[in-house]
Design a protein around this nucleic acid. Structure first.
Lengths: 203, 203
DNA sequence: GCATATTTTAACCAAATGGTTAATAAAGGT
DNA sequence: ACCTTTATTAACCATTTGGTTAAAATATGC
């Protein structure tokens, strides 16, 4: 097993695999494409990562981690609720504009991969929302926000952050936007989303 | 024995193709699976629809149509703004809960298929939002709602309606919800979404 | 400098896959 | 009945695909 040195080849493979898998998905990706993209022989892929599935798993895991870790850390921080919403919206928008194709990749594969595969990956990092739920209940009692379901609030925050990227080709087309216009609108949303959410729950 | 009136072969194929394509996507779908699912010989698929691509196109077109036609018709109707938002949220939630796997299928393929393929499909049905833009401008001048970008309002409405279904496996997992709990929450959202949107723009 | 271990490659291989063909069965028209 | 057209099938085929092998190149330790 080559776990010792020469990470450069391994890194080249991982970078290439990321590109190809995210672009084509597990089924659409070809090992030969990944090898070509990494500038190496196909057999080397199997030398470093024994199968397509194993290689995919590494890429998927990394992607899922990138998307999910921030949610948990911000939503469980000690910030005041509105600040939390603002921070989440801003930071999440940043992550996603830097990895615009990641969400669809992860969503797509989460729907397709068997349960066992996902179990393996999500084993421990189970986010907790207790902190947030308590915080929201407190604000409701204080009367600063409306009676709102914490779960649904989080779903709204995440939906508004991610979906526009996932549906970019749809929105661009049905709204007749050129890429520049679309990107301008996405930029507006970075600050807008938080205020939109806050306005919807503020009393 | 004469059995119960068998649906036409073409219909059987289309139904099977829908099932398989939506479950596995264009790349993951196997012609043999579609044939088996339809209870016919694989060659018959090519007899009715000459290639996998052509068959896929039919299924995709139908799915995209189902998802997009309603948007246009409701958003261009003559209802008052808030009613429009409520009607859209309700009807769209209905369409999607009846076809929960359709959005991801369409989104996924819209990101993968080449431009030419999509051009063919969206040729004419280009939605228009002029009506809605005017309506929103009017409400802003009347002072009933905040100064809000019509495009972003529509993006929000659609995002909140669709994304929770697309990300169902994610939400179920990170929020530790069993299928029943999740479905209850989705039901709440049917009415909640509209009020959430309205609250966020009401002055 | 040399033996050993690691990395990389070209050539293969078996299975799977979309698609074709030629023959057969069923329907329709006369 | 008989012929023509349409529908359906089993057997193939060419290509693609993930994966393997054995040999060559390169690095490593002494």
């Amino acid at each position: 097993m080559p776990r010792t040195k020469n990470t450069s080849t391994e890194e080249k493979i991982l970078a290439a695999a990321k590109t190809i898998f995210i672009e084509k998905g597990m089924d659409g990706a070809r090992m030969q494409d990944i090898a070509d993209n990494a500038g190496i022989n196909k057999a080397l892929l199997h030398y470093y990562f024994k199968s397509k599935e194993k290689l995919f798993e590494v890429i998927f895991k990394e992607g899922a981690e990138k998307l999910f870790s921030k949610i948990n850390s911000i939503l469980n921080s000690d910030l005041p609720l509105f600040e939390k919403i603002r921070l989440f919206s801003n930071e999440y928008a940043e992550i996603i504009s830097q990895n615009p194709y990641l969400p669809l990749f992860v969503l797509n594969e989460m729907n397709k991969q068997p349960h066992s595969f996902l179990e393996n990956i999500f084993g421990k990092n189970q986010p907790t929302f207790e902190n947030l739920v308590k915080q929201i209940d407190k604000e409701i009692k204080k009367g600063t926000i409306k009676q709102v379901s914490p779960v649904n609030l989080v779903i709204n925050m995440i939906s508004l952050s991610i979906f526009p990227f996932v549906a970019k080709p749809v929105f661009q087309r049905i709204m007749n936007l050129d890429p520049l216009q679309f990107s301008t609108i996405m930029d507006q949303r970075k600050t807008m989303n938080a205020e939109f959410i806050i306005a919807s729950i503020k009393k």
